[in-house]
Design a protein around this nucleic acid. Sequence first.
DNA 1: CAAATTACCGAAAGCGCTTTCGGGAAGAGG
DNA 2: CCTCTTCCCGAAAGCGCTTTCGGTAATTTG
Lengths: 337, 337
Amino acid sequence: MGTIYDLAKKTGFSITTVSKALNNYKDVSDKTRAKILQAAAEMDYLPNAHAQSLSTKKSWAIGVMFSEANEVGMKHPFFNGIIESFRHATEEQGYDLIFASRNLRNRDMSYLEHFKHRAVDGIVVICSDRMDEQVQELMRSDIPIVVVDMDSANCSVVYSDNIEGARLAVNYLYELGHRKIAHIAGDETIDAGAARIKGYELAMQELNLPIRPGYLVNAGFFSVGEGKQAMERLLELDDQPTAVFVAGDQMAIGVIEAIHEHGLHVPNDISVIGYDDIEMIQYITPKLTTIRQDTDEIGEAAAELLLEQMTAKERLTERRIIPVRLVERASCAPVKQ
Amino acid sequence: MGTIYDLAKKTGFSITTVSKALNNYKDVSDKTRAKILQAAAEMDYLPNAHAQSLSTKKSWAIGVMFSEANEVGMKHPFFNGIIESFRHATEEQGYDLIFASRNLRNRDMSYLEHFKHRAVDGIVVICSDRMDEQVQELMRSDIPIVVVDMDSANCSVVYSDNIEGARLAVNYLYELGHRKIAHIAGDETIDAGAARIKGYELAMQELNLPIRPGYLVNAGFFSVGEGKQAMERLLELDDQPTAVFVAGDQMAIGVIEAIHEHGLHVPNDISVIGYDDIEMIQYITPKLTTIRQDTDEIGEAAAELLLEQMTAKERLTERRIIPVRLVERASCAPVKQ
DNA sequence: CAAATTACCGAAAGCGCTTTCGGGAAGAGG
DNA sequence: CCTCTTCCCGAAAGCGCTTTCGGTAATTTG
């Protein structure tokens, strides 16, 4: 591979000139530039990123932090769609992604510390838990940052229009004739959960529908199992809902499971609508009608907001809310007379 | 944050001594070490990773390359399970993962070049396409490397016991009374596809079952749609199989869809068994019986093989084959009389 | 008590690159 | 022909850290 010293020796120029030629400085003649590039190609020269970063204070790396709350990490079907799209967008600008550990030579360190150690140019955090101390610390720092799926006044954020999504869901059920509409909700400590609850309440109010006792049930953190449990609570009610709006697709899978185990049919007995539009719900029975979050667009928006800060070299606080849309499949039907 | 120069000034020692104290050299007294560590803590000192790497030639970073063949990247439900477990294992040893782009200041470069540029300590590639020129190049290099889901004599590899897996599947169907067993296969250019075909043929031979005309159908690259198409071909046969072993879960989903659309029932009319055990198949109808690949163990084994090389600082070529097991669910039934 | 260890510390070189600044040569202008 | 630009190029400092090697002071040994 070699260094610029080797290149300098080989071509007879100084390392200064070599470096300039490589970096397209204008004060080197076309002829010498050509010679140097030629020599570089011949010896497969590649600049050392660490030396460059040390000297320029720019690492061309973006640190990514996943919420580890549920220990799924990159397996999360919604988050990994976002990160994939984010990666594509930043890759085009020449950035690499680094997934940091919290372990430095067996010494524990926070994500912020690790990112500072690595001197990343920016940080993306994909996390729903606003109480996470690690995330708080990142947000307080002065490194360019964008956080996804969570709101904050102190840094750039991007998330879906959860209130509108909830409204879409409720209105859709209403138009199918449903009046007894329940909501299986995500925990209120999670922004997405709270916003969808709010949207549900708003929509119900706008439609002059009462939220009957027990119709708003907290199902925690979006897992299949929690969804199932929540639905079982609804099925115990004397006054059962005819439709349920579920705050997440994974939960909705559990919800459908519970309904089926109860001997009821989806959607003939109970309609269910989910949220997210993760891939697998196209393959369950019935195919789930849901509110689609556009992971591609979320990832791109996040990249955009972060790149903006990195080139401006200052923190900005922009909020980007991505529209959602309803995807009609087969889990909702007109209410039975 | 500050540098070791600041620390030196603050404590009155030389930067040499500061560095030694920080790195637990034994030729610095306990007293001065304590002072220096104390000062370091006070000023939130963190070593600069780039400077360290430049000086030590160790970056504590592992480059990861995903097969981009199907453009799913980190969304791939099987691969991302592996990478997640790999990450956990390497994190414990203090390594960070870097997902490289192929773009360096708008200059195209290969993954190998990029990894050299970043001076990673090792590389993990998760890829099934043995023809990928990028992967070939990585394997030819002298950087420690481990490749997952593919065989090679030139570097450390880890993959599932595909032959045994296929055999398990076929034998299981046989024990249920099936004799007309078809195989919907992955493409032979993919190691996993080829091995499962081989296992299928072997098992059929061991059981003295003929592979009837049209019973071995190539379904390409493991997608739902390709699986569906392949099954439609099987359904056109005069002599339809009573059971089909499908080389991947995603394909199996398509297979079931095709069977259902044909008015037949799984498993009463046709049994289907998949491969992988990705999460979503627990939620489809019927729940898919499958051969489970242990992504956790694969990721750990890959980490182990790579760490071994990185500490030995030389390339090794070890092959690790991870056992599989059959997970019985509801998509297979005894053959109809 | 002199000599030989041992314990502790620092000067300096080096890792590979960028960037400022100055200087010489060539060309332009009068 | 002389001065002023413009064009190219290189010396040197600096980025933050590691590591070798040598030196002094303190300690041990005989």
